[in-house]
Design a protein around this nucleic acid. Structure first.
Length: 481
RNA sequence: CGGGGCAUAGCGCAGUCCGGUUAGCGCACCUGGUUUGGGACCAGGGGGUCGCAGGUUCAAAUCCUGCUGCCCCGACCA
């Protein structure tokens, strides 16, 4: 048994990918456009996904020794101006508060686009000796960046994120932290979101404003475009010097502190949607579904209703501590409507139970990722559900990985590259001479950017795709969100 | 910032060119009944300062002027 009828109200991916994306969000009731330009209202269904993400990530952060704190959203103007590169990078996209309490403020307050400056202003007071290090703090917060063009989840004026800000005694320690947190992001993306990512280093041009270097995870969406899904920065001593944060080392000498910062945002919800969902709506990997199992009971008479619900009572008795589930016993909707509703919302497993199943001791199990419908025995149902959820988690990752692999190519000829990226998008492993000038030329001529220098790229001699100059390794080039 | 489009019920639209009953349709919503294994049906009902502000006119959703907001496509960004 298979098959799901065509979805109403969702544009097919093949017709218009970006319409499809917004249709899926609307159909699943994840978010709405707000009355304020560029901002979104995250609806309960969408926020539940964010909560799943927060829970999993927060645990990973705590396991690596981090603690949470909260800093204000207002940043005094002169803080923003202390780190030269940082101002240059962020000033143009900042919202600034000039009035408060009906009066013009003495000093304008920037609404944080990120919190390095206010956090380092505080770290100055908190750090005196090497014994105060490392300082490993994370905060869950909103930030504002005045973007010209916005898209739900992918780029909104205000968005939710977490930002880790750590302080260390040495460069090596800071570097280890930067890499460790990138690895946390990779683990989270792949094992929880089932989104395969490439880890690597950003080019000078793409790195964070004020960082020594930036590492990232890059994912491929179903239209074969790249999406930066998370970043981790080694900030060196730039912020410590700008905010005069020093510590006494064991030898009693005064040194500047070494810093990192790292973040992922509600953009991950966009990544999740564009990696797994289909023409029928949202598809959630089990670990990202607050409620991974929904049961639609079916009945004609009141007697049948009682019988079905009673059986469900027995069947679900030991489920509470194993996985969340919901019994959709609304009596004003017919089953077909409920099937469709839960499909659009991406619930991983749907169970259908009616009078016929009571007789045969079976139940209908439908997998959202494959749309596969199976009649399964009511015996061992709990184990069957758990194993199905586990398979789905793995299968969805494998499917996404296979897609990325089949859309990743090595190319050595610039004209061939132009043709292929126009025709099919995709990731291209190409040689690059390491110069910003050729990177800019590439973007001007093809709208593609260097997504990252992958960690696993082997040393290999070749010629730069753009200039023909010598190169020692390949980088990933793609058109990106 | 450039190009395009839209603004009429919660959503999607018609009506606007050519001014004229009480502004209409589909979906959604409410009530009652029949239904229920893939998006139910029948009957009844509620909901609108026609984006805002001026103007023309006996009369404006409709004509004129100005403004505002939003969406989509490009240049910039997590």
């Amino acid at each position: 048994m298979t098959g799901i009828p065509m979805a109403k109200g969702i544009t097919k991916r093949s017709v218009d990918y970006s319409r499809w994306y917004t249709d899926v969000i609307a159909a699943a009731q994840l978010a709405d456009h707000s009355p304020v330009k560029g901002c979104m209202v995250i609806r309960p269904t969408g926020y539940a996904i964010w909560e799943q993400m927060q829970t999993a990530l927060d645990k990973l952060f705590k396991e690596t020794g981090h603690v949470n704190a909260y800093f204000p959203c207002f940043i005094p103007e002169h803080f923003m101006k202390k780190e030269a590169e940082h101002v240059k990078g962020f000033a143009p996209e900042c919202a600034v508060v000039t009035h408060g309490g009906g009066k013009k403020l003495e000093e304008p307050l920037f609404i944080r686009p990120t919190s390095e400056t206010i956090i380092w202003a505080m770290y100055k007071d908190w750090i005196q000796s090497y014994r105060d290090l490392p300082l490993l703090i994370n905060q869950w917060a909103n930030v504002v960046r005045w973007e010209m063009r916005t898209r739900l989840f992918l780029r909104t004026t205000e968005f939710l994120w977490q930002e880790g800000h750590t302080a260390h005694a040495t460069y090596e320690e800071a570097e280890a932290e930067t890499k460790q947190m990138l690895e946390v992001y990779r683990t989270f993306a792949e094992e929880y979101m089932a989104v395969p990512v490439i880890t690597g280093k950003k080019t000078e041009r793409e790195k964070f404003a004020g960082a020594l270097h930036t590492y990232c995870i890059e994912a491929m969406m179903q239209d074969a475009k790249a999406l930066q899904a998370g970043t981790s920065h080694n900030l060196g001593q730039n912020f410590a010097k700008a905010f005069d944060v020093t510590f006494q080392n064991e030898a009693g000498e005064l040194e500047s502190v070494w810093a990192t910062s790292w973040g992922v945002s509600t953009r991950l919800i966009g990544a999740l949607i564009m990696t797994h969902s289909d023409d029928n709506g949202l598809v959630l990997p089990p670990k990202m579904a607050a409620v991974p199992v929904v049961i639609v009971p079916i009945w004609k008479s009141d007697e049948e209703m009682d019988a079905v619900l009673k059986r469900l009572d027995v069947l679900t008795r030991n489920w509470k501590d194993k996985f969340n589930f919901k019994i959709d016993d609304r009596n004003n909707l017919r089953p077909g409507r409920k099937f469709n509703e839960w499909e659009k919302k991406g619930i991983p497993i749907r169970l259908e139970v009616g009078p016929r199943d009571l007789e045969t001791n079976e139940i209908v199990l439908v997998r959202r990722d494959t749309c596969e419908k199976t009649r399964v025995s009511q015996d061992n149902l709990t184990e069957r559900i758990i194993s199905t959820l586990e398979s789905m988690q793995v299968d969805m990752f494998k499917k996404a990985l296979a897609f990325r692999r089949s859309n990743t190519h090595k190319v050595d000829d610039y004209d061939e590259f132009k043709e292929r990226i126009d025709a099919a998008g995709g990731f291209y492993l190409v040689h690059w001479n390491g110069q910003t000038a050729s990177e800019e030329k590439l973007q001007e001529e093809t709208k593609a950017t260097i997504r990252c220098i992958p960690f696993d790229a082997p040393e290999e001699t070749g010629k730069c795709l753009i200039t023909g100059q010598p190169s020692t390794r390949r980088v990933i080039v793609a058109r990106a969100y």
